[in-house]
Simulated scan of single mutants.
Amino acid sequence: MRTGYWTGWVTAMVMALGGVANAQPGQAEQAAPQPAAAAAVAAPAPAAAVSARPADVATVDGIVAALYDVISGPAGRPRDWDRMRSLFAPEGRLMAVGARPEGVYALRTMTVDDYIGRNAKAFATMGFFEREAARSTEAFGQIVHVFSTYESRHAPGDAEPFQRGINSIQLVNDGKRWWIVNVLWRAEDASLRLPERYLPRR
């Protein structure tokens, strides 16, 4: 979710997730919990007690689209960080897998505020737009796993993304709304290309 060494939701830490999210409608709406079963899930409070936009958290499509949208924008345009905070459960984390020079892979874990602190400066000088290019979804009751292929660009009109990868997004519904629990991403590179099944259908 942010660009640079650890990019990958995004180029990732600047992942930031970038481009306008192009959520594919209709794939997960049926995953909303039944009212009777939802009572078993405790309702989390937003990380900063920020009220969410109802449309952002009413459906899986809505919250995934909001995630991509909130990190995207031209250089120097402030992001609506309270909107981003409102999407995540209090325990929510963002995590990036990145290659180290010695040939091993490391996991960087961030709170939402860690992510904001790491990327605010980069967003001030660099355009970053991330969009969803393809998606596969698994659901069971109140939990949903979205495997979201992302494309990162410096401007919405760029012909080709400078980065692609997978955002693995875990979601939970408390009977009232959806919450992001975790976002884990890994960028494509020369040693690991996106397989056909995770590319947009043509």
Rank of each mutant, 00 (worst) to 15 (best):
V144K: 05
F129C: 00
A124Y: 03
R164P: 02
R135S: 06
Y105E: 15
E151Q: 09
D69P: 14
L94D: 11
Y68K: 09
G76P: 15
E160H: 06
A96I: 04
R79C: 08
A122L: 11
Y68H: 10
T111E: 04
D113K: 09
Y105W: 13
D158E: 14
A120N: 14
D69L: 09
R108I: 03
T59E: 01
H145E: 12
E151L: 00
A124G: 14
K121Q: 14
I116N: 03
P161S: 05
R93S: 06
T137D: 07
V70P: 09
A96S: 13
N119W: 13
S86V: 00
I166H: 01
A65M: 06
D158Q: 01
D56G: 01
T137S: 04
E130W: 08
S168W: 07
Q170E: 14
P74T: 01
L94M: 09
D56W: 10
E138T: 12
G117L: 11
A155H: 10
G98M: 13
R93Q: 13
S136I: 13
R118S: 08
I166F: 00
P78N: 07
R85S: 03
T125Q: 15
V112H: 01
A55I: 07
R100G: 04
V70L: 14
E130T: 15
D61G: 11
I116Q: 15
D61I: 09
P90S: 05
G157H: 03
L87C: 01
V57N: 04
P54Y: 11
A89N: 03
A58R: 12
V64E: 03
F162N: 02
A133L: 06
F88M: 08
T137I: 15
A89Q: 05
V146I: 15
W81S: 01
H145A: 07
L67P: 01
E102W: 06
I166D: 03
T109P: 11
D82H: 05
R118K: 14
V70R: 11
R79G: 06
I169E: 14
I71L: 11
D174K: 04
S168I: 03
G157W: 06
K121E: 15
F123R: 15
I71P: 08
F147S: 10
A52R: 05
S86K: 02
D80L: 02
G141L: 06
A65S: 11
A134Q: 11
R53L: 11
R135V: 12
K121D: 15
G92T: 02
I63H: 02
M126H: 12
A96P: 11
E130D: 12
D80H: 08
R79V: 08
T111Y: 06
S72D: 00
A58K: 05
I143L: 11
I71Q: 14
A96E: 12
P161C: 02
H145N: 13
I63Y: 06
T111K: 00
M126L: 11
L87V: 05
F128N: 13
E160M: 04
G62W: 05
L171E: 13
M110E: 15
N167I: 03
D114I: 06
